[in-house]
Design a binder for these strands. Sequence first.
DNA 1: TATGAATGAGGTTTCATTCAT
DNA 2: AATGAATGAAACCTCATTCAT
Lengths: 175, 175, 175, 175
Amino acid sequence: MTEKQEKILKSALQLFAQEGYHATSTSKVAKHAGVSEGLIFRHFENKEGLLDAIIIEGEERSQALFSDIIFTSDAEELIQKTLDMMLSVSLNPDEFEFWKLQYKIKWETERYGEHKMEPLLLALTNAFSKLSYESPEMEAMNLLIIIDGLATRLALQKGFEAEPIITFLKRKYKG
Amino acid sequence: MTEKQEKILKSALQLFAQEGYHATSTSKVAKHAGVSEGLIFRHFENKEGLLDAIIIEGEERSQALFSDIIFTSDAEELIQKTLDMMLSVSLNPDEFEFWKLQYKIKWETERYGEHKMEPLLLALTNAFSKLSYESPEMEAMNLLIIIDGLATRLALQKGFEAEPIITFLKRKYKG
Amino acid sequence: MTEKQEKILKSALQLFAQEGYHATSTSKVAKHAGVSEGLIFRHFENKEGLLDAIIIEGEERSQALFSDIIFTSDAEELIQKTLDMMLSVSLNPDEFEFWKLQYKIKWETERYGEHKMEPLLLALTNAFSKLSYESPEMEAMNLLIIIDGLATRLALQKGFEAEPIITFLKRKYKG
Amino acid sequence: MTEKQEKILKSALQLFAQEGYHATSTSKVAKHAGVSEGLIFRHFENKEGLLDAIIIEGEERSQALFSDIIFTSDAEELIQKTLDMMLSVSLNPDEFEFWKLQYKIKWETERYGEHKMEPLLLALTNAFSKLSYESPEMEAMNLLIIIDGLATRLALQKGFEAEPIITFLKRKYKG
DNA sequence: TATGAATGAGGTTTCATTCAT
DNA sequence: AATGAATGAAACCTCATTCAT
């Protein structure tokens, strides 16, 4: 991956996250990256290829993020870490932008990356099971749904404060 | 509102919900509505004006939907009705399309209609308060976040089954 | 000529003079006249028909303006009156607008109304002849050219002061 | 400036001069220049940008034309050259088209390029002063107005013969 | 690898004009 | 006589993509 390739990818990530995929033209990306428009096509073939590259990078980043959580053996800690992840997203602008893009793309292209979440779902189910919750699968699913909801608020509701609600949730799941 | 005006609005609603705002051309809307493209601009001035009209109509429909819930005096019933609303959305294709559009637009245009939700937030807070939950505001907010999360899954995850998780939630909030 | 017909004509005159023929849409004219767009076509058939009506009206007004000058028997007075006409145009906003339109139309449609000017040319030639100028035809033509030049300045040069130069010319032609 | 850029500029100049700015579509310009329509916008951003480019080029050409006149030290010669310039315009189709466009644009966009003429006005004032005319400023202004009038006739009156009247004027100003 | 001129299809919008009422 | 909904063509402009250099 050359330096310019990375610049393009970074600019695209930023612009797609800000304005959306369809609303961002390749020429905007090129200008923002300080690169000729043709270069985008040399490196990524397509505008869609550029999107794919971003998604693939995202998949890797997601996995890295999740793997730390998934391999936590203590059930309670695993749940706490899941919620901490959202807190970290809400506080770190870089992570935030990255997450926002993931959701934006999902909504614009209507492809929900279920497989990305599945390991986390299983791990959470297992955790709730260990903690003898009555319906572990449902509890796990519920938590992931909460995460989707939180992401929605974080991305779209200006001035949304994530910290209080996450603290509330963390306490709730502490038992 | 003439007959053709309504056809345009309906087609736009459908297409925007399916493909997204930016990905839907005015000519597609016109063709789908069986109308000349110019007519869109005569009636709605802009593509954005068309979107505005849809949003305004949506606001009205949302209010109608919520008002039934909000004016429920029994606290437990109010919460159940809130969840039932989501069930109804998941089962009724018309309602589903309408909700999906609301979220799609939010994600594409980055305007979260907080004011639309505020009355429901207050009503839920009040309900949780009556039921002597410890943090009624947080409980209410959490439920709304769950709704956003459910909407995300419903719209984006192919084959997502809403009924089990909603049933689970309903039981959970029954005490 | 009905009341609405006159309103249309007046609005068109004003707008064509301000913005030009091509830059003025029939809908703008209709709005400005407080009339439905269809009515323009009922009364004038075409946008061009509207222009024609204005030109014809202009021809009549021009003739009225010129005839007073042309039938002046005293040679010197005739020349003075010709220059006075321009002074009057420069001072009277209504007349000014009317003249401006005539020139605008000429430039946009490339049809110079020579016939309109011809009687004045002859009268001036005759006058200069009586006053024993050496080349009466050339003198007359020159004066008409000055009038075209004055009209150009009046219409296009913001803040152009017509009075001093006209006074100068009047004195010059007094002998 | 690439070859195609120049072709566009040249075609636009020609067509704007012939038909007027508003009556000439960008697609007509593109076709005439043997170029894709998009290229116009790549190079000139706007239809107006194209016009601007033409005006700027015109400004430069005007200055070149005038500078030769302005720096003539002999007063009588300066005046003669001013009139000769008009003769040259009337005889040279290329120059003629260029001048016509300047005036067409002025009338369609209502921006009189006074600054372009000012140096000539000063030079002429100075010349008439040297020749001890009574009102040098007025004489100079008058001559410029005659030029505007001549331009009007040349452009708009089919079959107008410039030579006789210019010869007449040249003799007149010879003393 | 990198540029930037060039394209063609398609996007939004405007406009003159028609027509049912 | 008058309206205003409706149309279709054409206007200006954007965009993803290609290609010569």
